[in-house]
Amino acid sequence: MLNFHKDHRNLVNVALLVFVLLSMGIAIMPASALSDGTQPLPDMPKMTPEQRRGLEVYVAENCAACHTQQVRNIAMDKPWGARPSIPSDYAYSKQRLDVWRASPSVLGSERTGPDLTNVGQRQPGAQWHLLHLYDPRMVVKGSIMPRYGWLFEETAHPAADAVVVPVPKERLSDTAHVVVATPKALDLVAYLTSLRQAPLPDGTAPAFLPSPRGPEKAEQGTGGDAAADGEALFKGTCSACHQSEGQGLAGAFPPLAGSPIVNAEDPTQMLSIVLGGYDARAEYGVMPPQAAQFTDAQIAAVATYVRSHFGNKAPAVEPGAVAPLRAQIAPETLIVP
């Protein structure tokens, strides 16, 4: 009946039919189930129009060629999020863009650059993102990310409401010029700073699988639960702006090396700035508040690290010193025992 060797019609039909059936089972049915059966988390904010336009810039520049947005359920992905990603995380961002373009493939397959699932949490400062997009190597020395100069304009006469990017003067072709972010850059930054994992009720998040290299290795990453490592925390979060040696970036981010606030005997002012943020000096970017990101122990550890490195010589900070300040500055981040 099915003589494939002599009957071309049978051969092609069977090959087609079996392939379609297999494809239904392995692709279309599971895809439908995930597509229709996924709802956003209750605490997930909807995308604003600005963030949504930012996502379009993200897609047009094909950022997903180098950046993933998935925290896998293995220990080595802990630096990228507090919990593994779940399908609901993508309920708002992965919708069909328009009649021409499919749902954006933000999960990615290459991690040439860092994962961006939680980048809004790690780097909440818009100014950092603008500088980084303008010239990544200005803020992260070893970066190989392309410069996105076409998202910015150099002008001598910025509009009154223009967002000026704090590019050091010696980088400009004319010292009378300033760099202004275009709406596209602002949208993209709005999208990037909105990327943060929505919290799950305690105990409901999927667990991380242990590293095959042994548990002691897995916990070394930033954000691990082990004893807070001030150096790793500094490199993972603070050094993006304050730079690897605490030297800061003239015209954008203040130095920590030799800073009187850092070196003060009493750490209260320094801890207040770390916890609550700071925007008092026009010549520098905004310091975003860190109270929600880190525990008391972590803040004490990173403060101690900064106070004892880069030529700074100030006494260590005890976690106990952070708690009362937290209650005063950011009571909403107090963890009720």
Partner: peptide
């Protein structure tokens, strides 16, 4: 029709 959310990722 089946490519919103992670449906797109399966495909």
């Amino acid at each position: 029709w089946y490519q919103n959310g992670l449906g797109e990722t399966v495909i």
